[in-house]
Design a binder for these strands. Structure first.
Lengths: 178, 178
DNA sequence: CATTGCGTTCGAGCGCGCTCAAAGCCATAA
DNA sequence: TTATGGCTTTGAGCGCGCTCGAACGCAATG
């Protein structure tokens, strides 16, 4: 099954660190077994956002949610799947604006698939750019930590006797796995 | 020299893509030869931010900038170095609030170095978390692109005949370098 | 000498993404 | 029966990081 393949690859990608990757794999894999229906706080807990935000997304036109006889939201499987997608995209930095456009395309029918794909590809490239930026920033910060001397520029190394960074964790290679 | 070492590692890290990495390496290395003094638009161009933002940073207390006889800002080397640092930290996601704290520590003297180092280390960890988040998001988006079918969830692949992603670029492995 | 252009200060405004307050409905527990 | 708790709607508010407008100063140019 495709999900197993994806999960395997994700596990390969993230070698270290417990909490985030566990949660993350959850996010990637829980689509297979989405509950029939959930109430708002359950969905909020699942997605790690607030009920406020869920209502906000609905008001913004990102998703339609059926109600029960009391007028309470009952999130069905399609709504939940869409919200999983939406929160994932938000987390990766896609603006509300774009998500509104994207979901309007989805609701417009299958003939909009090429445009949707374009959006995804553009967003993928945005994520890659951001990853490169962050990787570079990380290198700069690690360099500054390693050579720390107190100036606001990293090119004035002092304190070469004992490395203060070692107080926090054991030595590691300069560029992290990412 | 240490800067050469850093630059080498950065070059190793970023295999592809011209514009960003060139600019980025510039950002990492230009500290060695900071001009004696610059006017505001020159600094703005150097840092790729607006003069408005430079004035805003100064108003926020992040940096002090001397004036000439006309009251115009004359950025000296220390101011420029600090601004390089500040923009780098902003780009990596450090909030203004924290930068205000950090620079106040710098201005308070050498005895605040341990606390500054703590801030840098915490920020480094924040960057790492964000990198992991983004890497995961990237995997999800690439998976969705590869299996694109139009649903908002990635587990309903259709269109197995011709892969629309191929219209944009040749096939590649599912998980990108990064 | 007037215009153009780049700078100044100060305060206000904006875009984004939530986040919350107020007022009310309904169901279950004491 | 009252009270508690969780949901509803609507509109307003907020924190962040800029971004801009207005009114002005000074210097070089046509």
């Amino acid at each position: 099954m495709a999900t197993d393949d994806l999960m395997t690859r994700v596990l390969e990608t993230l070698g270290d660190d417990g909490p985030l990757s566990v949660e993350a794999i959850h996010r990637l894999t829980d689509l297979a077994d989405v509950p029939e229906s959930m109430m708002i706080t359950e969905v909020a807990d699942l997605l790690d956002i607030s009920p406020h935000t869920l209502r906000y997304y609905e008001r913004a036109g990102l998703v339609e949610v059926p109600r029960d006889s009391n007028g309470h939201r009952v999130y069905d499987a399609p709504a939940i799947r869409r919200l999983v997608f939406l929160t994932r995209m938000r987390l990766s930095g896609m603006p509300m604006r774009d998500l509104q456009h994207y979901t309007s395309l989805v609701d417009a029918g299958a003939h909009t698939e090429p445009e949707r794909l374009d959006m995804l590809i553009e967003h993928r490239d945005t994520i890659r750019r951001r990853l490169r930026e962050l990787t570079l920033s990380l290198a700069a910060v690690e360099y500054k930590i390693a050579t720390y001397g107190g100036s606001t520029g990293p090119d004035v190394p002092t304190l070469n006797t004992t490395d203060p960074a070692l107080r926090h964790e054991p030595p590691r290679r300069a560029l992290p796995p990412v």
